[in-house]
């Protein structure tokens, strides 16, 4: 099979592309380390499920209450 020569990004683009990707990685790391994200990560899926159910129940009570009032 024929060998195709390597092509690379133009030199002017190389740093720019890497800087952009590094910025994105830093953003992801910062987001992961944010207190809210950490607190959410500590909650188990089950806990989140129970919390969601409670909120739905509460919303239901509010709606029904408003209709009856």
């Amino acid at each position: 099979m024929i060998h195709l020569p390597e092509r690379d990004l133009p030199p002017r683009a190389r740093d720019r592309v890497l800087r952009r990707a590094q910025r994105e990685l830093r953003r992801e790391v910062a987001l992961k380390d944010a207190p809210v994200t950490r607190a959410l990560a500590r909650l188990e899926t089950g806990t989140l499920g129970v919390l969601s159910a409670c909120m739905l129940l509460w919303a239901g009570v509010v709606v029904v209450g408003a209709m009856l009032a």
Partner: peptide, 19 residues
Amino acid sequence: GDPEALDACYERYRARLYG
């Protein structure tokens, strides 16, 4: 989240992906 890993990955695959 190691930036050096991203650097190394970029060095290894940049030209190959571009080609």
